[in-house]
Amino acid sequence: MQIIQPHYHAIARTAQDYERMAMSGVVAVAEPAFWAGFDRKYPETFIDYFRQISEFEPTRAAQYGIRHFCWVAVNPKESEDPILTREVLRQMPEFFEKPTVLGVGETGLHKSTKNECDSLEAHVDLAMKHGQLVLIHTPHLADKAHGTRRVLEVLAGMNVDRQRIWIDHVEEQTIRPCLDAGYWVGMTLYPITKCSPKRAVDLLELYGTERMLVNSSADWGPSDPFTLQECVLEYRRRGHSLQEAVEVFHNNPCRFLGQNPKFDIPQIRIDTVAPGSTKPVCS
């Protein structure tokens, strides 16, 4: 089955991960800008990082037949520094012109401070002015419910196109308000600290599949890109059809990311072919 990994920190992963992802059906990944594990001091460091994910990383993925797209942003942890954030934001529009940059992300909140909220607002504002998609990170663990509420409050005060905004890392306590407000949501599968494949399938069964994305994130910390395939297996094991799985794990990323015409991967429809025929049994 062909699947799309819509949130994947490729530069933190090995070539073997690309190879194994390709062998397990991944046809495209989208890499949001991320925290490096330490706070970067210089705007230039971000610019080089954006060059890495928009110029070099697509060539590495292409060796395994995987399309690589990316997002640019100052991530929430580093946006505590307003001078740095302002300077990086000033230079971001030149990356919107790159052929594989899909939008602004991951912006969002970590500790939900005033500087973080200001940065989120500035990122979303920049994205809307330039017609870009937005990917929003919500905080981890105990900070998640409060941080997600703050994200929704910040967005509610802005003139945004909600269909073009994806609020990521939702869990049971945060998914409903995000969906009710009209945004796309993402469930991020981590071995321990975020959603699990089984819980993600529970949420798909509870809330339906519309405006739902599933991803592994997979960064330099304890994480696993193949939790996404685990989720596909769990979804199928519960009796959902191949087409239903394709809708969630391939076509939904196409629907959201395809709002940016640079993401040109078409949706898939599975047809059954009668024996001895090349024509579908039904369409």
Partner: peptide, 20 residues
Amino acid sequence: FLESRHMLLEIAAYLDRYDA
């Protein structure tokens, strides 16, 4: 702590899944 939190959430989800 985090590992235990994770396992408890999985059990809670299992019971919710059953009720659903």
